[in-house]
Amino acid sequence: MRPKKLSYAKYGYIFSIPFVVAFCMFTLYPVIFTLVIGFTDFKGLGVTDFHFLSEPFKNFQQILSSPSFKTALKNTFVLWGLNFLPQILLALLLAAWFSGTLFKIKGQGFFKVVFYMPNIITAATIAILFSTLFGYPMGPMNSLLQKLGIIDAPYNFFQNKWWAKGVVSFIQFWMWYGYTMIVLISGILGMNTEWFEAAELDGASGWQKFFYITLPNLRTILIYTLVTSLIGGLQMFDIPYLLVSKSGPNNATLTASVFIYNQAFSGSYMYNRASAASMIMFIIICVLSAVVFYLMRDKYEAAAQKELKRAARQRLREEKQKARTGA
């Protein structure tokens, strides 16, 4: 049997070709190209030739010492902090309620669908929608607050930097808490039920079970969510770019991606500086990814297997049921 099986090994290589080719062309090559541009004097509209700089790290130095880039990174963390903490707390709370160890909520399916909904809507649309909702002086938000008597004159939200940051964070929170909740629910459901049964025999209350069993076992997923959301924050473009004309009051909502866009595709077309900024951002993301990768190494497989099996079983059950009712 063995030699015969070996003879099929070449298909492993053959079937991987499209992936490898596409990856090399559309990811690897651009990464290298971007890196190279970072060391050159490449700038200007419609220019295609460039030369390496005599001081190779000049662009990198320029970016690292540029206050705007620092602001962009700082904003990224501030915006992330403002949205992640409430997001994870709310998601945990909802996950605890919805995973059904304490009680059953009617209409769970509906709630999940509705909570997750903003996540699939085009970010560009959401940005424009919110900028219209918070419009000044006649936007819905202003008229609501005035009706409720909270303010007596229209307020121009996007002229205040904390409001601008707050709205961007809120949108992120609003778009992602449903997703985080579903992830956490599936994490909870994937846990070994024996632990809970044992705890129950020991007379543990629902909340005790949550704090002593559920939460510690969600650690990996929580860290995972944390890091991916941070990476997502670094990449955030559509919302800050469209919500408050480009970078908000006094660069309040300037993010790393908007910074790169401004460098490369508006104004002076400084591809070299933008590339250097991209690479710095890339390194930050690599470090963050390495953390995730390290944490996930083993748990990945085990968790995925279990989840998939559970889903497969359920599907089988459903199909059987369908077959039975159909017949």
Binding site: P30, V31, T34, Y271, S275, S278, F282
Partner: peptide, 8 residues
């Protein structure tokens, strides 16, 4: 991420 390779 796609943004960091956008220039290249």
């Amino acid at each position: 991420p796609s943004q960091v390779i956008s220039i290249g």
